[in-house]
Each structure stands twice: as C-alpha cells, then as structure tokens.
C-alpha cells in the first residue's frame, strides 16, 4: 500500500421510510468497520453521528419514498452526491411499504391517521429509483451485509459491482441444502434474486422473496408451483407481493 495520504471518499447514509434496520445492520460490521474506515470518511450518518457536510462521493439511502417531503429530500441528496446507492428492500424495490399501494390511498390514510388524515400528506410507497437515478442497489430485508461489502470494495477499487441475477435456489444447491419444499413448505427462492447465500433455507426456513425477483421471473410458473404445493392462488399472490408489490402487483394474473 502506498504511504502517501490518500483522499478518502466522503460517504453519507440517509434514511427514508423504513425501520432503520439496514443502518443498524451496518453498524454490526464490527471487525470490518475499522478496515472500512481506512478507506472512507463517513460524513453523515444519522444513526451514529451528527456531522453534516455539503457534498458526498457516495450516498447510501435506506427506506422508500412515501411522502412529498421524501421527494424533496431525495432530490436534494441526489444533487449533492456523485453516486447514490439504495440499501435494503424498502429503498431498492419499495419493500413491504409498497403493500399499502394495493389499497386505495384514502383508505390507508384513514386507517393509519384516523381523523388527522389530512395533516400528513402521503404518496404511494416507491423505491428510490422511482424518483431519482440510483447507481447501485443492495437488496434484502435487512440488506445483505456480504453484498454491501462487495459493492463497497468494488467501488473503492474502481470496478463495476456485479449484480447477482440468478435464483436463491442456486445458492441452495451450492450449499447442498435440502429443499424446503421437501420439508412441506413453499418457497419463493426459485424466482427470487440470489446473493444472500440462501440464508433462510440454510436455516430451514422458506424464502419470502425479500431480495426482489430475478430480472425475468416466470410469475405464472411460480404461481403454479405454489398452488401445486397446496396453497390457494390468492395466498400464492400475496406471498409474491409481500416484498414485490411495487414492481409486480400489476403483472400478476387477476
């Protein structure tokens, strides 16, 4: 490594509509965190510190867009950031938040805010990419730590991060997991984007599709697999929509 002092990229983290689980997850990096701080300066991180800075080399965004003020804020952040990366299902694909889009917005407001519904302007829940350009996405609920590190390392080394585009099943096979279908469960792994090392099936749980779907999901075939394994079409659609309402609610068969 060179001895000259390098200029470290300025990195900031912001959160929008979410549980903030992804940012907390990142603080769990523990051992790796010090090594990471060798390479970057964290200038804004609501969960961890108060510093403010004007411009960022990389802005990591957690959470989805769901109010008019989110729209303004994300425009502002994008304007000040060279690169913008969405972290976690809410930011990359709308996530669970986007289930609200399946109901009339007026109804949703009334349920949540009751009589105060007009005090809180709301929008359908959207991924960050619905409003501004997103350079990379790190999927998962919470976001996948190995993927976060991989993307960060690639960017710091000046390489283009590779987005996984094969199903979670692939990782099950590499680990020689017994398929949870053979344990009597149903699983969304066959059309869900891998990259989490099939963590749920590896612990005997079915995949709920938190990393979003692969780029060419055969949804009809997936619905057929689910119904063949004994769940109703309605329930099968709900399973797919849990994390994927924003991108896929329109394209499921009625």
């Amino acid at each position: 490594m060179t001895t000259e002092a390098k200029i470290k990229p300025k990195v900031a983290f912001f959160d929008f509509t979410s549980c903030e689980g992804c940012q907390l997850n990142k603080l769990n990096l523990e051992n790796d965190l010090l090594d990471i701080l060798e390479h970057i300066d964290i200038v804004e991180f609501r969960e961890a510190m108060d510093d403010k800075a004007e411009e960022y080399d990389i802005a990591f965004i957690e959470g989805s867009i769901s109010t008019p003020s989110c729209v303004e804020r994300i425009h502002d952040i994008r304007r000040r950031s060279k690169m913008l990366i969405a972290l976690g299902a809410c930011a990359t694909q709308g996530g669970i938040n986007a289930m609200k889009n399946l109901h009339p917005i007026e109804e949703v407001r009334e349920t949540v805010y009751g009589d105060d519904k007009y005090l809180f302007p709301t929008l359908p829940a959207m991924p960050i990419s619905a409003i501004v350009k997103v350079d990379y996405k790190i999927d998962g609920c919470p976001m996948s730590m190995p993927e976060f590190l991989k993307v960060l390392k690639s960017l710091l080394a000046g390489q283009e991060p590779i987005k996984p585009d094969s199903a979670v099943c692939v990782e099950c096979k590499l680990k020689e997991n017994e398929c949870v279908f053979d344990k009597g469960m149903v699983c969304l792994g066959p059309i869900t984007r891998g990259g989490c090392d099939a963590i749920c099936p590896s612990f005997g749980q079915f995949c709920t599709g938190c990393r979003g779907l692969i780029s060419n999901p055969n949804k009809n075939a997936m619905l057929e697999i689910l119904t063949e394994h004994g769940i109703s079409l309605d329930e099968a659609k709900k399973r797919i929509l849990l994390f994927n309402s924003y991108d896929h609610s329109q394209s499921l068969p009625k």
């Binding site: 009809n220 075939a221 997936m222």
Partner: peptide
C-alpha cells in the same frame, strides 16, 4: 416446457 419453467438452474 418453458411455460412451466422458472429458470432456477436446479
């Protein structure tokens, strides 16, 4: 066959 296949690679 491709109508039923999800391309999971298994």
């Amino acid at each position: 066959v491709s109508k039923k296949c999800v391309g999971c690679g298994t």
